[in-house]
Write a protein that binds this DNA or RNA. Structure first.
Lengths: 170, 170
DNA sequence: CCTTATAGTTCTAAAATCGAACTGTCAAAT
DNA sequence: ATTTGACAGTTCGATTTTAGAACTATAAGG
């Protein structure tokens, strides 16, 4: 599987991964949500090579996650801001942060706290069902093919069924 | 920044990215949630090279995301199952899927639907505040340093403040 | 004229990944 | 008894990506 093929797979997760599923891209997006907008800002905050940064920004713009808008004329300069498509990545970012907060903190505790302006409290993000509002657990979710399904969510497995496979615990 | 440094950064998101932030790892985890457990299963579903697969599985086990448990003795065989730490990645997976469902579907529609056993309906995952239950919007969240903070969530930016930086739109 | 700020591009070396073959164990089939 | 096939990896040379550093370009300021 080549990486540009990811976006054509009949799996929403694979397609998302094709857009944002590499380490530098995720870190660039973190910076975006922390209000970094400019090339130098990303570069010095992350220590990414300028070459890669330029490439990743270009890709994010191409994908519609960032918009490149001019902020001055004399020497033409642009800054990168999140589009709505980009802002919609927020739950992914929060889910990543929350898992780290839960499983990767050291004795010092969380590096960052999040306060909800609406209620004023520090909070954790919780993922709930859009229909009944209950928190989602993997075991309570059943997955089935939708209209855009092809065969399997993953690549078609050859699975040549010769020999009746002695399996002790299938 | 080298990749093993990511896990030491004072940023929960960077640490999470250090564990699961590459394309193959995310796809392997997708398969885990689709109940794949064995080496051959991952390999044929994903088309990943066996070399990389072995390495990624080893890393996920080392990180406590997967547990490697024997399922037969004669030729020793093991399978990889999600630990609780691994199961806790579910909101991340769902957030990735949901973004793809929202922004990356073609005319055919969603490849996969999710049904919540509790309420019986097909649903979307929604991220809400643990304190007030309201859906989270990036603009309504204020971020501030926690007990584990060092200086900035990212790497310390040198930011040598010579010359008073003519910035038209900072 | 020289330096600084910003936003890239170019180039070579190093690291990661691919692709394919190979190892080893055991059961089942011939 | 030998071959075949399933399974779970390991090894290795070729290709692709990434790192690291230098270079280009435009304009302001001293």
């Amino acid at each position: 599987m080549r990486w540009d093929e990811l976006e054509e797979e009949p799996c929403s997760m694979a397609r998302t991964i094709g857009v944002i599923g590499d380490r530098w891209t995720l870190l660039i997006l973190r910076e975006c949500f922390l209000r970094t907008r400019r090339f130098e800002g990303f570069q010095s905050a992350l220590g990414i090579t300028r070459h890669l940064l330029a490439e990743r920004l270009k890709k994010l713009v191409r994908q519609g996650v960032l918009r490149r808008i001019p902020y001055q004329e004399s020497p033409k300069r642009h800054e990168y801001i999140l589009t709505q498509k980009g802002l919609d990545l927020y739950p992914i970012m929060m889910a990543l942060v929350h898992w780290g907060d839960t499983h990767m903190v050291d004795e010092r505790g969380r590096p960052l706290l999040h306060q909800h302006r609406k209620c004023g409290k520090n909070f954790d993000p919780v993922m709930v069902c859009s229909e009944c509002g209950e928190p989602l657990l993997a075991k309570e979710v059943h997955t089935h093919p939708g209209p855009g399904a092809r065969s399997t969510p993953a690549i078609e497995a050859p699975e040549k069924p010769k020999a009746k496979a002695r399996r002790s615990a299938a």
